[in-house]
Design a protein around this nucleic acid. Structure first.
Length: 462
RNA sequence: UCCCCGAUAGCUCAAUUGGUAGAGCGAGCGGCUGUUAACCGCUAGGUCGUAGGUUCGAGUCCUACUCGGGGAGCCA
């Protein structure tokens, strides 16, 4: 007999069908004459209720061995459930305990646990309702992302994880080395990187953008989707040292095209997840954030606000609101400013663009006014900045000037500059943090709970 | 890294002005023929984050450290 997944049993199967299911016991209500087992196999939020009669072979011994967390296999006939809470249930013909779980030591109980506690048992937390639902939704989000780009003929480009170029100086980098650090520490001599694996200092990538630009200016529209590393000592609910980033890069796109794509992209993912994960999404709306579905509907139904930085500053200045940090043209907006715009003033996603050149990196295209660059940030309620992108500077001379202005050595980026020497074209792209997108979609407050194994300062267990 | 808050039973928390530890849930045992956060009864379970200090006496006050949470910066 084939094993049937619980999700399919609950959704498609009919009374009198015979099936075998295997999974983990969420809870058991045991009695002498018969027992109820709630079985979950990860395929759905809901459990399958298995009714086990005392007449089943080995009843007493099996029931004694089964507690929360045990793994079991059961065969039986499906019946319409007379009880409330489920359409269908299984009446077991056979029940086999595969692996027991000592109730004295098994950390998960059939009660609510704090997310802080669950992080300490990351090897068991996907067995909970919330983290299981996050895993399914995260999976659906990644599938939707690929669908979005593939259906638009974007090429998926695998950019390197290890890099010798400090791309754009986007934060502190993790150094990668095969040098014997213990010996080096004793020697107290200058480090000779020619002896290192790559013959020079190398690091984990902080962005695949520069390499994506290479493929965008040869293959056409493309995107990267991979792990990204930042060695910042960040301790917040929206930062990780290791996270996944999607970075589309499109030739012949100007900033307006870039903004349109970013907006369609987010809307498409939200629409897909609402359609494909309705049960999990209802759960998040009920248990995690009561305004979640409303917030997401707002995203699917309304155009994002597009607002030049300069106008944003004016709105903030006229708002009459007391901010901890003063608003002033030429300074970067603070979190409180961004949150005011997206959560209070507009109450919907906002795309800010045309930022002062002085606060943005060298590769962003300089506007005709000379004061601003074609940068854009997509801000969403709750999460804040979810996308950062720009139209890239395609003019060789302007780019070299900007590098010098930003203390970047042009010689180190000779290949990047070559793209401007040979067949240069206007092009644009952006970076979207997968975990922040999952936070937006699930309403989960802490980014550490939307990635299976979070890496943060002082934390790399599991 | 900075600011604020916290750490007490397996989990979530309580303990007046400093006087030697409690509840709910969970667990174990017993009961129960349709339960679904099952229910009812009994039982066990704690070097009060770590190290110092003040005091006749510290879970409670002081210092340092560790870890966690919220906010900030960095950004996605």
């Amino acid at each position: 007999m084939n094993i049937t997944r619980v999700a399919r049993v609950l959704r498609d199967c009919q009374p009198e069908e015979e099936v075998e299911v295997r999974g983990w016991v969420r809870t058991i209500r045991a009695k002498p004459a018969f027992s109820f087992i709630e079985l979950n196999d990860g395929s759905s939020l809901k459990n399958l209720q298995i009714v086990v009669d005392a007449a089943v072979d080995g009843y007493e011994e099996s029931i004694k061995q089964i507690g929360t967390g045990a793994s079991v296999a059961a065969t039986g006939t499906l019946k319409e459930s007379p009880g409330k809470g489920q359409r269908i249930e299984m009446h077991a013909a056979t029940l086999r305990v595969i692996g027991t779980a000592d109730a004295e030591t098994y950390p998960l109980q059939k009660k609510r646990h704090s997310f802080e506690f669950l992080r300490e048992i990351a090897h068991l937390r996907p067995r909970t309702n919330t983290i299981g639902a996050v895993a399914r939704v995260r999976n659906a989000v990644t599938a939707s992302i690929h669908n979005f780009f593939q259906s638009r003929d974007f090429v998926y480009v695998h950019t390197p994880i290890v890099t010798a170029s400090d791309c754009e100086g986007a934060g502190e980098m993790f150094q990668v080395t095969t040098l014997d650090l213990t010996r080096l520490a004793q020697m107290k001599t200058e480090i000779d990187y020619s002896q290192d694996f790559f013959g020079k200092p190398s690091y984990l990538t902080v962005s695949g953008q520069l390499e994506a630009e290479i493929y965008a200016t040869s293959m056409g529209d493309c995107y990267t989707f991979g792990p990204t590393f930042r060695a910042e000592n960040s301790n917040t609910s929206r930062h990780l040292a290791e996270f996944w980033m999607i970075e589309p890069e499109m030739p012949f796109y100007e900033l307006d095209d870039n903004m349109r794509l970013a907006e369609e992209f987010i809307r498409s993912v939200v629409t897909d997840v609402l359609a494909n994960c309705s049960e999990d999404m209802e759960f998040f709306n009920l248990r995690i954030d009561k305004t979640l579905l409303e917030t997401l509907k707002n995203i699917t139904d309304n155009e994002f606000i597009r607002l030049p930085y300069t106008e944003a500053v004016e709105i903030l200045e006229k708002s009459g609101k007391k901010f901890d940090y003063a608003v002033e043209w030429g300074r970067d907006l603070q979190s409180e400013h961004e949150r005011f715009l997206t959560e209070e003033h507009f109450k919907q996603p906002v795309i800010l663009f045309d930022y002062p050149r002085t606060i943005k990196p060298f590769y962003m295209r300089v506007n005709d006014d000379g004061k601003t660059v074609r940068a854009m940030d997509v801000l969403v309620p709750r999460v804040g900045e979810i996308i950062g992108g720009s139209q890239r500077e395609e003019r060789y001379d302007v780019l070299v000037d900007r590098m010098k202005e930003c203390d970047v050595e042009p010689d180190d980026y000779w290949w990047y500059l070559d793209l401007r020497r040979y067949g240069s074209v206007p092009h644009s792209g952006f970076g979207l943090g997968l975990e922040r997108l999952v936070q937006l979609v699930t309403g989960m407050q802490n980014i550490r709970d939307v990635i299976p194994f979070p890496r943060t300062p002082k934390n790399a267990e599991f």
